[in-house]
Design a protein around this nucleic acid. Structure first.
Lengths: 160, 160
DNA sequence: TATGAAAACATGCCGGG
DNA sequence: CCCGGCATGTTTTCATA
């Protein structure tokens, strides 16, 4: 099997997967409640979660916010076309300066990077795009503004 | 002010913002620890969190997983070009069938929707794209495969 | 797995702005 | 009246064995 060659992808135990699914649904659930679902005692669940954290499978726990309710309802995907062979590290450093950038990655295809931007409104979004265009390594950008969010899930699937 | 017209965006109290920032950092932190940061007692923090949940600002709590460590290291943005005037609801229903789709939205620009796909490997990704192309309403797709993730943040910013 | 001490949580009541 | 602090009974966590 290919998967087990990778040092960090040890075919996830089905019980671990169940625990991760529960944590995905409610990361503040008590170990006892999770244990009730997966048929394990609370300490057993805690040990598994600790192990998953140690292995780096679990990176942490966060709150899921409603973007609209917090006043960050405007969203866009911005394709960035970079100069010559701009190093990814350069782009990373630049993008990290923007609190409005919630995700960014280099990609294959016409553009060099795709940036996911959240803003308070269109004016704010426009300002961000302008600032991006003013970055020294940016040649041009191409934006797609989100009209209707259709699907939004915990961003790593856990096999059932 | 424009913001206060929206029923769900009541200029977030600075203490609430601080609490949300802490929860974003570690959603399993005890109310007492959060209270120590924001200078409030544990019950006071709990009441505020409950209120934020009631208002819909807080949607829940989830676990943050390392995609690589779980064997879902391949990622792509797929632009979907849909037939005629396909209703968003139709796309939504279709996309929801795919566990590999972690986000999707209709957008402005050339394409009609952008779909964020996570897969185990390239073969898996290819299969998903083929299945998408086979959807009745899909005219064509255009994929950007992620090379290097640069930024990944809790997907709603909280103003400091 | 089980157990017991320590910590965290939920709730009711009261005071101050 | 809203909001925060305190006190208490209950549950959960966590380190033993």
């Amino acid at each position: 099997m290919l998967g087990s060659v990778l040092p960090g992808a040890p075919d996830l135990d089905p019980i671990d997967a169940a625990i991760l699914r529960e944590l995905g649904r409610d990361a503040r659930a008590s170990f006892a409640r999770i244990g009730a679902v997966v048929n394990l005692s609370a300490p057993a669940v805690k040990r598994r979660v600790d192990r998953l954290k140690r292995r780096g499978v679990v990176d942490g726990f966060t709150v899921r916010l409603d973007p609209g309710a917090t006043g960050w309802g405007t969203e866009a995907h911005v394709e960035v076309y970079a100069a010559g062979s701009t190093r990814p590290a350069v782009m990373k450093e630049a993008f990290e300066q923007y609190p409005e950038i919630v995700a960014a990655s280099t990609v294959t295809g016409d553009a060099d990077a795709v940036v996911h931007v959240r803003a308070r409104d269109m004016t704010h979004l426009e300002e961000i795009v302008e600032r991006l265009n003013a970055e020294p390594f940016v040649v041009r950008t191409r934006s797609s503004v989100v009209l209707t969010p259709l699907v939004r899930r915990p961003d790593v699937p856990v096999q059932p």
